[in-house]
Amino acid sequence: MARFVDPLVVGRVIGEVVDLFVPSINMTVAYGPKDISNGCLLKPSATAAPPLVRISGRRNDLYTLIMTDPDAPSPSDPTMREYLHWIVANIPGGTDASKGEEVVEYMSPRPPVGIHRYVLVLFEQKTRVRAEAPAERANFNTRAFAAAHELGLPTAVVYFNAQKEPANRRR
């Protein structure tokens, strides 16, 4: 069963990161024991370790997962849009991201200013790919990457928000 797409439109994930698509794969993202839902707010400290990303789909199909931050370094002035956090390629359907090949190592969210969106996009691959890591994490473009690897439109998108945790001022 596919997820709703509306929150992605309102949250401007569709538009700023990906184009309008019809979800065909169910993807759940869990940091620790808790599944995240679109638009929820997480503490950066809760996202230090890579999340467990489980996907539906058939065993023979392969999928690519990309995690980016379209609000870097600041949501009002996103000069680094998008900042790349993670790429995992060749994930077999019905498994989780740990069964794929990590192309770009996971980097935990560390938003310097403002509330950032962190978007996990899942693409279905046509064949097994040998994706090359981009030279830089900053100014990554999910659409361009998808076009370069013939990934087409996304099959699932999940996003969450994170904000810099206030420093411990009280002592």
Binding site: L8, S37, G39, I115
Partner: peptide, 17 residues
């Protein structure tokens, strides 16, 4: 505006859920 959109998006998500 972003804050409103964020809130709305999350509300929609939860409603859908």
């Amino acid at each position: 505006a972003r804050s409103r959109a964020r809130k709305q998006a999350y509300t929609m998500e939860l409603e859908a859920e």
